[in-house]
Design a protein around this nucleic acid. Structure first.
Lengths: 332, 332
DNA sequence: AAAGCTTCTGTGAACGTGCACAGTAATCCC
DNA sequence: GGGATTACTGTGCACGTTCACAGAAGCTTT
C-alpha cells in the first residue's frame, strides 16, 4: 500500500493541494472549515509530509549536522560529548529539525563532510572540538550554511560564533585556590596546545602564578586518561617536590591520581589535585576530584541558540562566554 | 551562484543526463571516454548529487536513524553509547549512509520517532537500550524499514534481530570467580528488571549460586552511579556479613565502592567487588574494577552487519550472541 | 454602484534525479 | 549477408512538494 501524499489528503478533505500545503506551513489564510476538514483527513490517512519533495523545492533539508573533529580512537572518551548530543537533539526536535552525526577524524572523513555540507545536505553545522588549523573550517568556509561551534575555534573566533566556558577564569579559580591553601610548588598538566581548553587554561594558570609557572612545572596531555598518567610521571620526575597539580580535565586527572598513587604520594596530603570539567568521572575517582565546573548544558544550549539565530537570518551574532565555578571535593 | 546539477555536468562532459546518472550509480554500460569526460566535469563543476531529488524517485533516504530509548536525564550517563555511535557512524559512512539521532524518552519523543520512521525518512532503524514493553516497538511494527537492536529487545527477540553479549555467561564468569576465591556471602546489584542486562545477569548469577542466591542478597539499580551507591547501602543493611558483591555495571560499581568506603569496608579485603562492561570508569576507580568485558565494538559491528543484510534484502537474519571475558584488576 | 481591500482558494510550473524505453552502432554467428 | 547479440547513449516521465499567481467572494470605502 502506498504512502498517502498531499494529494490524497486534499481529496479526502475536499480541498486543493495548495490549501493543505498552506495549513502545513502555517500560512494564515486557511478557513476554519478547511482547517478541521484537513486535520481530520491527515489523521485518517496517516499522512506524513515527504521531506525529500519538500527539500527539493525549498532548498532546505530540515537537518543539522554535528561534526566531531577528533581522531577516531580518541573520540568520545570524553563523556562531555554526551551532554552536547543530548541537548542538541532536544532543541532541534523542538524545531522539527533532525541531527545528523559525522566524524572528521581523517582526511577521507573531512572530504565526506565537506561534500555533504557543500552539497546542501544540511541547513546548519555544529562544530565540536575543532582543533586549530583544521582544514575543515577553511573548506566549509563561506557560501555554505551557517556554522557554529561549542567552544571557540582557534583562529576563527570572529568567523564562527561559539558558546564557551570562561577557560581562563576557571584556571585562575583553581590556581588561586591552591595558592590560598598555601601550596608552594604548583604544577600543571595541560590539554593539547591547539585547543582553546589547552591554551587558555594554561594562560589562566600562568596569570596567577606569574614567574613561578616555569616550564619544569608544566606538562602536556591530550585529554586522555593515559596521557594524564604519563604527564604526571613526567612531572614527578622533573619536580619531585611539587605539592599541587592542576590538571586541565577530569579524565586526565584520574590518570594523574593513578600515577601519584603509584609513586606513593598521598592526595591531598602530599599533593593536591585539581581537575576541570566536573564530569561524571570526578565523583568516581578516589578521592573524588576538586574540579572546575563547566556549565556544559548551558554551553550547548547557547550554541544552539546562536545557530537558530543564524538559521532565522539574524545578522552576525556575538560569541557567548559563560562563567565557571570551583567545586571542592576531597582531592584538594 | 547556483549549485551545479546533473544537467550541468552532462553539458560540460558533452553527454546526456542519463549517462552521468549511470556513472554515478555504478551501471556497467558507460564507455571509457564518457567516463573520463564525466569525471573531469564533476570535479570541475564541483558537482554533488542532490539527495532530496534522488530520494524522491528512489524512495530511499540514504540515512539510518538511531533511536535512544532512555529517559532524558539518564541518557548517556553510560559511556557505552559512545562506542555504539562511533562504530555506527563509521560503518554507515562506508556505505555513504548518514546517521540521524533521535531520542525516545517520553511520549512526545516517541510519536516524533514513529512519524519520522513511518513517514519514510529513514532506510533503517537502530534501536538502543529499548526496554521491555516499550510501545515504540509496536508502533514501528511491520511495514516500515528494517530495524535492528544493540542488545535484545525483550519480548521481541524473534522480531527484531540483535547482536548482544552473552549476559548470562558474563554473570556466571564473575560469580564463579567469587566462588573459586572462597567468598561465602555473595550479593548482587542488578540493572533494571525490564532490560536484558538486568534480567539475564541476575539469571547467570542465580544459576551459579542456586539456593544461596536469596532475596536478601539481591538489590536493584537503574544503571546510574547513584543507584549503585543506594543499592549497596541497602545490601549492607540487610546483609552486613556479605563478603562479595557482583554489580551489573561498572558505573553502578563505582557507586557501590563509594558506599563500601563510607561504611568502612576495605575492598577487596573485606568485600570483593565485581563490575560489568569494562568501560572507561573501571580503571578510574580505586581500586580499579575487576569486571566483565563486553565486546562492545564487536556488538556494534555485528548489529550494523545485520542491518546491512536486511537493507540488502537478505531474508530473515539470526541474532548474534558474543562471549564475554573476565578482566581481573584489584577490586576482587 | 463602482472601486478597493481582505480573506480564502485552486492551478501550473519547477525543483533534480533515476528509470524504463527506444534507438544506434559495432560485432558476432552461422 | 541477414539476424541476433552486445555495448552504449539520449529522452520523457514520474516522484511529492512549495510557491507565485490569478481569481472568487464578501465587506468597506468613496
Amino acid at each position: 500500500m502506498k504512502r498517502p501524499t498531499i494529494h490524497d489528503v486534499a481529496a479526502a478533505a475536499g480541498v486543493s493541494r495548495g490549501t493543505v500545503s498552506r495549513l502545513l506551513n502555517g500560512d494564515k489564510y486557511v478557513s476554519p472549515a478547511a482547517r478541521v476538514a484537513i486535520e481530520r483527513a491527515i489523521s485518517e490517512t496517516g499522512y506524513v509530509v515527504n521531506r525529500a519533495a519538500r527539500s527539493l523545492v525549498t532548498q532546505r533539508t530540515g537537518s543539522v549536522v554535528m561534526v566531531l573533529s577528533e581522531p577516531h580512537e580518541k573520540l568520545f572518551e570524553d563523556p562531555n560529548y554526551s551532554t552536547l548530543i543530548r541537548v542538541a537533539i532536544r532543541m532541534l526536535a523542538e524545531r522539527d529539525l533532525s541531527l545528523v552525526m559525522m566524524m572528521a577524524g581523517d582526511e577521507g572523513d573531512r572530504e565526506r563532510v565537506v561534500r555533504y555540507v557543500r552539497g546542501g545536505h544540511a541547513d546548519g553545522v555544529l562544530l565540536v572540538s575543532t582543533h586549530a588549523g583544521d582544514p575543515l573550517v577553511q573548506a566549509l568556509g563561506s557560501g555554505g550554511p551557517p556554522a557554529v561551534s561549542v567552544g571557540a575555534v582557534i583562529g576563527h573566533e570572529n568567523v564562527i560564533p561559539y558558546a564557551a566556558a570562561d577557560e581562563r577564569l576557571g584556571a585562575r579559580q583553581m590556581t588561586e585556590y591552591f595558592v590560598r591553601q598555601g601550596r608552594r610548588r604548583i604544577a600543571m598538566i595541560t590539554g593539547p596546545m591547539d585547543t582553546p581548553g589547552g591554551i587558555q587554561r594554561l594562560e589562566g594558570f600562568a596569570e596567577v602564578l606569574g614567574r613561578k609557572a616555569t616550564q619544569r612545572l608544566i606538562a602536556h596531555g591530550d585529554w586522555t586518561q593515559a596521557s594524564g598518567e604519563r604527564a604526571m610521571h613526567e612531572l614527578l620526575e622533573r619536580s619531585p617536590d611539587l605539592d599541587a597539580v592542576f590538571v586541565a580535565s577530569d579524565l586526565m586527572a584520574a590518570g594523574a591520581l593513578a600515577a601519584l598513587r603509584a609513586a606513593g604520594r598521598r592526595v591531598p596530603d602530599d599533593v593536591a589535585v585539581g581537575g576541570f570539567d566536573d564530569s561524571a568521572v570526578a565523583v568516581s575517582t578516589h578521592p573524588p576530584l576538586t574540579t572546575i565546573r563547566q556549565p556544559l548544558a548551558k554551553m550547548a544550549q547557547e550554541t544552539m541558540r546562536l545557530l537558530f539565530a543564524l538559521l532565522d537570518g539574524a545578522g552576525p551574532v556575538e560569541p557567548v562566554v559563560l562563567p565557571t565555578e570551583l567545586v571542592v571535593r576531597e582531592s584538594a
